[in-house]
Design a protein around this nucleic acid. Structure first.
Lengths: 141, 141
DNA sequence: ACCTTTTTGCAAATCAGCTGCATATACGCT
DNA sequence: AGCGTATATGCAGCTGATTTGCAAAAAGGT
């Protein structure tokens, strides 16, 4: 799937995982694809509410599509789940996130990599599933 | 501070960060030091309730001591904070940590560094204050 | 002991997320 | 194009986790 799939491609993707392509789901994916960073349940629900979609529906869809493998849900340490589409262009690789502890904004860091300078680092480390950086973003400094 | 500080050492530590050494705080630290893994607010509150300490107090103390640098608060992914004592200066935020989302253990990764392969990464990123990797440790895999 | 500041207890509020159920829809089938 | 059924949605209330306001109580310096 390309960076910004159109409505038909989105519907296809939804059906491909065994879910029905409802307006709420399409709108959710459109929104997430348009976003540059992961969005919270509240972000999505608030936006969809303008189209008369209930927050429970928004939430169920986020979870259902996550379970179905269309979205990734991440917990950045502030007790709020954020969702972002899994673009298979990125090979489904999860990328590091940067969370501003002041304003709560999140950025995706596709081009940051981890270097272990010695094996000792991996003593306890098994499988790394998420990389999270926290700090102050440029706007908040 | 040693692995298992006694009551007086605990009181000292609390005062050292500018807080008053109240029974609730001492009991909280004693409990956390005795625990082998991070405890939830519920764990602590439940235990302290036996001594007539309110859960709001337990929670405030957990947060206050976290802010003061005596404890570390981590989020394993179930939207429940877990707390553990910071046993020595080595365990500060100056180096990356690895958090096992299964057992809650935190390990220090002194020898892992992050490399931004391009400046684009730092678009929004201002100052990074904490690097956290999450995953499954070798014992939990 | 006294005084000031920090803490505590209690109750009630908030916040994120979930659930039950009756109704409405998507979409495969004819 | 219309049907029928499994799915999805809306609504409303609920849960569990965490926080807050405020008056009373305790900590610790003098």
């Amino acid at each position: 799937m390309k960076k910004t799939p159109d409505t038909d491609e989105i519907k296809e993707a939804i059906r491909a995982v065994g879910l029905r392509a409802t307006p709420a789901r399409v709108a959710t994916l459109v929104m997430l694809y348009a976003a540059k960073s992961p969005l919270t349940h509240a972000n999505v629900a608030e936006h969809l509410a303008e189209s008369g979609i209930d927050k429970a529906t928004a939430f169920r869809n986020l979870n259902d599509m996550t379970d179905a493998g269309l979205l990734r849900r991440s917990e950045l340490g502030d007790h709020v789940w954020r969702f972002e589409p899994i673009r298979d262009e990125h090979h489904d690789a999860s990328h590091p996130h940067f969370l501003c502890v002041d304003c709560g904004s999140v950025s995706c860091l596709d081009d940051v990599t981890l270097t272990a300078s010695s094996k000792r680092a991996s003593e306890k480390v098994g499988e790394i599933t998420e990389i999270l950086l926290r700090g102050h973003c440029n706007e908040c400094r």
